[in-house]
Design a protein around this nucleic acid. Structure first.
Lengths: 243, 243
DNA sequence: CGCGCGCTTGACTAACTTCAAAGATGGTGG
DNA sequence: CCACCATCTTTGAAGTTAGTCAAGCGCGCG
C-alpha cells in the first residue's frame, strides 16, 4: 500500500470549522491591554515576536487567531526547541486540559487574537449545542496532523522534511504555486527537527535543481510540484543532483 | 523555566477515563471470527502479530483494548516505519474522522478487544450524556502526548530517547522499578526514530553505567531513576562513561 | 545610505546508521 | 526431555547524513 500521509497533511486545515464560534456569547470580562470587546471574546493585538503565553504557565485563557501567524513550541532545559505547530487564522490556542499550557505561543508576525477566559470558554462548550462536537472534530484533526509530523520527524530525511514543509505551507495558502513563508529559517528548522544551516542548504539545493525558485527569502515558487510531492513522500530521495 | 515535558509524559495514561463505556449500549451486530457479544460491544480475540486494521483502510470499526498491547504505525512507501503509539488496555483505536484509518494497528501480544461498528459508536457519542466530553478529554491527552513525542523525535539525542522510553513504560506500569517491555527492539526503534542496533547499544551502555539492569530481554530494572530522569529531560547528556 | 541581523555557504566533525557476524532465546518436534 | 532451528538481540567496524563552526553576503529597517 502506498502511504497517502503527505497528501493528507497538505489537505489539512486546522480549526477552519471553528469559524462559527463568533457571536456565541457576549459577556463583559476585564479588558486587557489593547483589548476591544467583540462578540464572543476580547479582541487583542500581539506584536511580532511577543509571547502570548508560555509553556507551564497557568492556563487562564483560550485564544483564537484572527490575523497573523504564531509559533507553538516546547523547550528542553538546555534551550533545544521543538516547534509543535504554527497557528494561523481560525486556529485555537491554549486549550489545556488541566494544569498549565502545554507549549508556548509567540507571534511570528503582528497579529490579532480573540481571547476567551478559560471558565467562560468551558461554559460555552457546555452550553452551545454542537460546540463540543466541533471541538472534538478539530482536536482529531490536530491529532491526525501530529501523527503525520511524527512520521516526518522520526523517519524522513532532511530533503523530504523540507519538501513536506513547502507543500504544507502551499496547502494552507490555497495551493497556489507562489508560497509566502512568514517564519524565519530557524523556525522552519525547529519545526522540522533540523538546523537552520541544513534548511538553507537544502532550499539552495532545491533551487539549483529547479524544483523551486525564490523571488525573496520569504517568497518561494513551486516550479515542479510533482517532484516535490515525490520527495515529500519519500520516493526519489536520492534523485537530486549532488552539490 | 525548566521544561516539565518528560515528567508529564510519564504521568499520562491514555483513555483510562474511558473505562465507563461499558454497558452503555447492547445491540446485535454480526459476530466476526471469535466474537462474543458483550455489553456495549463485541469481544474479539487478536493473536500476536496480527493486524487489526491497516492505514488507509475504510474505518468500519472503533476498538477498545481489553487486554494486550498494540502498536500503531504509519509507513513511507519504501518501508520506513514510524510507530505513533502503543495502545494498552483501556485505549481506543480506530477513531478516524472521515476516510480511512490514519494508522495501522498490530497486536504485539495476544490481545482482546471490544469492537464497536462505527455508526453505532457515533450514535453512542451523540446519545450517551457526557461521552462526547470524555472523548474530548481523552483526545486532548493524546494530543498532549503527541506533542511531547514531537519534542522527543525532533530534538532529543538517542540516549535521551531511550531514557524517556523506559520512564514512559515504567509510568504505564505503576511506576515500579521493574519494567516489562512487551515489544521488540525494532518496535522501540521505530517508536523513537532510531534503529534497533542503536537501541541495543544504548541499552547496553545504560547497563554498563549501572543506570539499569536486565534480568531478561523484556524485563528491565531501573536502578537509578534520578539519573534516568535527568537523561530523559536532556540534562547530563554527556555524563555517561564512554564505551 | 549605512548598519545589523538573518541568510547563505563551505570545511570539518560527530552522531547515528549500515553492514556483518556472533550470541541468546524460545518454541517445536523427535 | 532435550536438541534443533528460526528469530531476535547484541556487538563491532565502516560509512553517511546532518550538525557544528566560521566567515561572507544581502536584505530590509531606520
Amino acid at each position: 500500500m502506498i502511504s497517502q500521509t503527505t497528501l493528507r497533511t497538505q489537505e489539512y486545515r486546522p480549526f477552519a470549522a471553528f469559524a462559527g464560534l463568533d457571536g456565541a456569547c457576549a459577556a463583559p470580562g476585564r479588558p486587557g491591554p489593547a483589548a476591544v470587546a467583540v462578540a464572543g471574546g476580547l479582541h487583542e493585538n500581539v506584536n511580532a515576536g511577543e509571547t502570548l503565553f508560555a509553556e507551564g504557565e497557568e492556563s487562564e485563557n483560550v485564544y483564537q487567531v484572527i490575523q497573523g501567524v504564531f509559533r507553538l513550541h516546547k523547550l528542553l532545559s538546555d534551550g533545544r526547541r521543538q516547534i509543535t505547530g504554527f497557528a494561523q487564522p481560525g486556529h485555537l490556542m491554549g486549550l489545556a486540559q488541566t494544569g498549565g499550557y502545554i507549549h508556548s505561543a509567540e507571534a511570528i508576525t503582528q497579529a490579532y487574537v480573540r481571547r476567551y477566559p478559560r471558565a467562560r470558554f468551558e461554559r460555552m462548550v457546555e452550553e452551545v449545542p454542537g460546540l463540543a462536537h466541533r471541538l472534538l472534530t478539530m482536536t482529531f484533526n490536530e491529532l491526525h496532523a501530529a501523527q503525520d509530523r511524527m512520521l516526518l520527524l522520526g523517519r524522513k530525511h532532511a530533503v523530504e522534511k523540507v519538501a513536506s514543509f513547502l507543500l504544507e505551507m502551499a496547502a494552507h495558502q490555497g495551493a497556489a504555486d507562489e508560497v509566502h513563508i512568514p517564519m524565519g529559517r530557524g523556525d522552519i528548522a525547529d519545526y522540522l527537527g533540523l538546523t537552520k544551516e541544513t534548511v538553507c542548504k537544502l532550499l539552495s539545493q532545491l533551487k539549483r535543481d529547479g524544483v523551486i525558485a525564490a523571488s525573496s527569502v520569504s517568497r518561494i515558487r513551486l516550479r515542479d510540484r510533482d517532484r516535490l510531492e515525490d520527495l515529500a513522500a519519500g520516493d526519489l530521495a536520492d534523485a537530486l543532483q549532488a552539490a
